[in-house]
Amino acid sequence: MSQQVNTRVEDTSPVVGSSLWQDAWQRLKKNKLAMLGVVILLIIILVSTFGPLLSSYSYDQINLDRNSEPPSWEHWFGTDQLGRDILVRTLVGGRISLMVGIIATAVSFVIGVTYGAISGYFGGYIDELMMRIVDIIYSLPYLFLVIVLLAFFTKSIFMLFFILGGVSWLTMARIVRGQVLSIKNQEFIEAARAVGVETPMIIFRHVIPNTLGPVIVYTTLTIPSAMLSEAFLSFLGLGVQPPLASWGTMVNDGVEAIAVYPWQLIFPGLLMAVTLFSLNFLGDGLRDALDPQMRKD
């Protein structure tokens, strides 16, 4: 028991701390699935960024004579109901969806983890107050929040991120808090306290790293919901505006045509799914790589 406490305290001392990330990277590199995820993600990012430049079609080029055509040599992914090339539209849409996924997740990660950790660590009235604030934000009708913000502020991509990030951290905060509650009284935390480590240091160096398992898992779950929320927000007039599209809006529109023009759903949907899978493998790899207990083995 005491042995373990020692390891933990050492683990998080500054010197060893810097090697924590190096260690993690070393371990991550060995995880084939995680690396496959990284490679696929890089390919998708590259293709979304530069792919549209290579195509002879543009995302908004309408050709009503050739609407809803199945995949062919000219249009690899087929055309949509306005005769636009789905391949180009999917790639361009990927830029938006990837950005949305990454930023919403980052916000949820930073705010949610910090907030949850503080709440859980201090407990008592602070915890009570902080969690009630989460409850309140949770309970406000999100739809109206968006409608009102749209009515009073000009639409912009920042507002989209603000709104997406603004709610995605709530569940994260709850999960982290739950985790922290269960570990904060464990011996290694008390030992750190006993040797006089400052509170912020305890939280960020000792508490949070031990909640990373569920956090990373939940993060990989946040990304798809952020991408789909973006489609919902486009519906309200925020998010991408036509003729631009995102994966979320393309999937949304494609569902209606699922039985008639399945390619309008399948290609953007597939690309989105592959991205989510890759992110997920990466997430699992990261989780394992960062797991303090795994390191010990």
Binding site: E128, R132, D135, I136, S139, L140, P141, F144, L145, I147, V148, A151, F152
Partner: peptide, 22 residues
Amino acid sequence: LGMIPVLFIIITLTFFLIRLAP
């Protein structure tokens, strides 16, 4: 007991929020 002030805040915020919507 702690629920009561929370609900009160939620009701108040929601009341004015939905009235602000066009």
